[in-house]
C-alpha cells in the first residue's frame, strides 16, 4: 500500500469536515445577518451589503449594527474555539477552556474598574469610554497571564502548576471584581453585570478588524506549533524523548492564546462554554492532528456563537438576550450530551 493512499484516506475525512464547517459557518453568518427585529427582508439586507440602492436607515442598520455583530460572532467564536483547543492540549485537561488561566476574571476586573471607579490604565475616564473598557480588560487579561508566567518560572511550566496557578489567580481577580461591584454605583453595577454577561451589541467594524487581525496572526503562529502540540498529548516525558521541549511549547502557545482570548473577550465580555465545547466537537470529528483540530475547533466556535446570536435575537421577540447567557444555556446540555453519549475514550 502506498503512503499516499493511506495518508490521503486519513486526511480526506478531515478536509471534508473542515469544508462542511466552513459552509455551515457562512450559512449561519448570512442567517444571523438577515434576522433582526427591524423587519427588513433578507433580500434587502443582502442588497444593502452590495449596493447603495437602499434607504439610509436600512444601510445604517445593516452596516453599523447587523454586519459588525454577525462578523463579531463568527470571529470571536473562532478565536475562542482555537484558544480552547490549545488550552486543552497544553494543560492536558478536557475541562480546560480559554478562561482556565483566569483570563476572564482578569478582563472582568479590568472592565469593572473603569465602570466602578472611572479609572483605567490610561488614566481618568475620557470620552473614548467605548475603547477604554476594552483596553483595560485586555491589559488585565494579559496581566493574569503574566502572573502565571512568574509562577511558572519559579515552579516550572508543568500543566499541574499552570492549572493551580490559574485557579488561584481566578479567585484573586474574582474577589477584586466583587470588590469593584461592592463599591460601584447602581448604574455602574448594571454596566458591569451587562459586560460580564457577554454581548455583541457594542461591536463595530473597527473592533471586528482588530479581533480578526489578532486571530489570524495567532492562528498562523499556533499552526506552526501543530506537531509539537500533538506531541504534548503523548505526555511530557515522551515529548522530550522525541526532541520537543514541552515547557517551551507551553509557554509560547500559552502567551499566544492569552493574547487571542484577551482580544476576543475585551470587546464582547465573557462568553462561556464556546471555548470548552468547540474543541470537543472538533476532536470528535477530526481527531488529534492539530493542523485540522485548531481550525475545525475555531469553526465549531463560530457555528456555536452564530447560532447563539440567532437564538439571542429570536427567543424573545423585540429583545436581544446577552449572547453569553445563550451560549451557556445551549452549551451545558450539549456538553453533558457529549460526556454521557459521546464516543468512549475521545479524550
Amino acid at each position: 500500500m502506498s503512503y499516499i493512499s493511506i495518508y490521503k484516506s486519513i486526511v480526506a475525512r478531515r478536509i471534508l469536515v473542515l469544508t462542511m464547517f466552513l459552509v455551515l459557518t457562512f450559512c449561519l453568518f448570512l442567517a444571523d445577518l438577515c434576522i433582526g427585529s427591524s423587519g427588513i427582508s433578507p433580500l434587502v439586507v443582502l442588497k444593502a451589503l452590495f449596493s447603495n440602492s437602499v434607504s439610509s436607515v436600512v444601510h445604517a442598520i445593516v452596516w453599523d449594527f447587523r454586519l459588525p455583530w454577525s462578523l463579531m460572532a463568527v470571529i470571536v467564536g473562532f478565536a475562542l474555539g482555537v484558544a480552547g483547543a490549545v488550552m486543552q492540549i497544553i494543560l492536558n485537561n478536557p475541562l480546560a477552556s480559554p478562561y482556565t488561566l483566569g483570563i476572564s476574571h482578569g478582563a472582568g476586573f479590568g472592565a469593572a474598574m473603569v465602570y466602578a471607579l472611572g479609572i483605567s490604565i490610561l488614566g481618568p475616564l475620557t470620552k473614548y469610554v467605548h475603547y477604554i473598557v476594552p483596553i483595560n480588560a485586555f491589559v488585565f487579561a494579559l496581566l493574569t497571564c503574566a502572573l502565571i508566567m512568574i509562577i511558572g518560572k519559579i515552579r516550572g511550566f508543568t500543566y499541574e502548576t499552570l492549572i493551580l496557578a490559574g485557579i488561584a489567580i481566578s479567585f484573586l481577580f474574582s474577589a477584586l471584581l466583587s470588590l469593584m461591584e461592592y463599591f460601584a454605583s447602581e448604574e455602574a453595577l448594571q454596566a458591569i453585570v451587562f459586560w460580564l454577561f457577554g454581548s455583541l451589541i457594542k461591536s463595530s467594524i473597527l473592533k471586528v478588524e482588530i479581533v480578526t487581525a489578532v486571530t489570524l496572526v495567532s492562528l498562523v503562529v499556533l499552526l506552526r506549533y501543530s506537531w509539537e502540540l500533538v506531541t504534548l498529548r503523548l505526555g511530557d516525558e515522551k515529548a522530550r524523548a522525541l526532541g520537543v521541549d514541552p515547557e517551551k511549547v507551553r509557554v509560547v502557545t500559552m502567551v499566544v492564546v492569552a493574547i487571542l482570548t484577551a482580544a476576543a473577550v475585551c470587546f464582547v465580555g465573557i462568553i462561556g462554554f464556546v471555548g470548552l465545547v468547540a474543541p470537543h466537537i472538533a476532536r470528535f470529528l477530526v481527531g488529534e492532528d492539530a493542523r485540522f483540530l485548531l481550525p475545525t475547533s475555531g469553526l465549531a466556535g463560530s457555528i456555536i456563537l452564530s447560532a447563539s446570536a440567532i437564538a439571542a435575537k429570536t427567543i424573545l421577540s423585540g429583545a436581544i438576550l446577552p449572547i453569553g447567557i445563550v451560549t451557556s444555556i445551549i452549551g451545558i446540555p450539549f456538553f453533558l450530551y457529549l460526556v454521557i453519549r459521546g464516543r468512549r475514550g475521545v479524550w
Partner: peptide, 12 residues
C-alpha cells in the same frame, strides 16, 4: 506512563 490519545491513528 501516559496512555496514547484515543483519536490518533497508528500512522500519525
Amino acid at each position: 506512563t501516559t496512555p496514547p490519545p484515543s483519536l490518533l491513528t497508528v500512522y500519525e
